[in-house]
Computed example of a mutant assay.
Amino acid sequence: MSRIGYKPIEIPAGVEIKFNDGLVEVKGPKGNLSQKVGSGFNIKIEDKELVVERPSDSKNDRSLHGLYRTLVYNMVVGVTEGYKKQLEIVGTGYRAQKQGNKLNLSLGHSHPILLEDPEGILTEVPNERTIVVSGIDKQLVGDYTAKIRGFRPPEPYKGKGVKYSDEYVRRKVGKTGK
């Protein structure tokens, strides 16, 4: 039984939600988002609260109930507050620079890595060891930060690489000589 699916979503002031033919559209002060919802699922809006209703108690519908509720909730939070993830770069000579809408990464490869910001994503480089990725779509922000981290994930011996700011890198002891 999905308990999350039954939880109502409060609609903040300035947010407009439309639902028709399985498509949820959320408009807010930061932008617009839309998400397809499975057939049969219904969204009721009453008294500044939104409730996702499932069509039946089948196993598939029960498993998707909480998912669709969370996706709609993430859209509401995204258009009001937005999402932000921070990456840290650890290692000698590793650095990041912002050039217009491109991110230039020097991560110990034989060449610099140039990444163009996807539409709807904003990257900031407050210093050469920190990257801040922000946007209204939680999935896009997470995908882009994972892509950046994937070029040089942190290694366990010296901790070098690109890591999330709240990530703990478990360190290993190196070889011992005689």
Rank of each mutant, 00 (worst) to 15 (best):
P156N: 13
I17Y: 00
Y144I: 06
N20F: 03
Y168C: 00
Y68T: 11
G82K: 12
E155Q: 14
T123L: 06
E88S: 09
L23N: 03
V15T: 09
I11Y: 05
G78F: 14
L115F: 12
P126S: 08
V133R: 02
D117M: 10
S106C: 02
L33N: 01
L33I: 06
G22N: 05
G28E: 00
Y73F: 13
D57N: 14
F151D: 10
I9A: 00
I89G: 09
Q35E: 14
Q35I: 12
L114K: 04
V51H: 04
Q86W: 01
S58M: 02
R69N: 15
K18H: 08
S63H: 04
S2W: 02
N104V: 15
E155F: 10
S58V: 03
Y164L: 12
I43T: 05
K36Q: 14
Y73R: 15
M1D: 02
L87P: 00
K48D: 06
K59E: 11
H111Q: 07
G14E: 04
V90K: 12
E81F: 07
V141M: 13
E10P: 03
D61F: 01
G174T: 10
V141G: 11
K48Q: 09
M1W: 00
S63F: 07
K36I: 13
P126C: 07
Q139I: 12
L64Y: 05
S106K: 07
G100A: 03
T70M: 05
P112E: 05
G40H: 00
P8H: 12
H111V: 04
G31P: 03
A13L: 08
I43F: 03
I136M: 07
T145G: 12
K84V: 04
E81N: 10
K163Y: 02
I43G: 01
K163C: 04
V24F: 01
N20D: 10
Y68G: 13
E167I: 01
I45Q: 07
V162T: 01
H111S: 05
T92S: 14
Y164V: 12
R69P: 03
S34A: 12
K102N: 13
S58G: 09
I89W: 11
S56E: 08
G93H: 04
G93T: 00
I11R: 00
F41P: 03
E128L: 03
I11W: 06
E128C: 04
L50S: 08
V26K: 04
D137L: 05
V125N: 07
V125A: 06
I4D: 06
H65G: 02
G161M: 04
A146W: 05
N20T: 08
A13F: 04
V173C: 00
Y168I: 08
R129D: 15
K102V: 02
N32L: 13
Y157M: 10
I4N: 06
Q97M: 09
V169I: 10
V52C: 07
K178D: 12
D61Q: 01
S34Y: 07
V141R: 11
L67C: 01
Y73D: 11
N104P: 02
E49D: 10
V79N: 07
G174R: 09
D166Q: 09
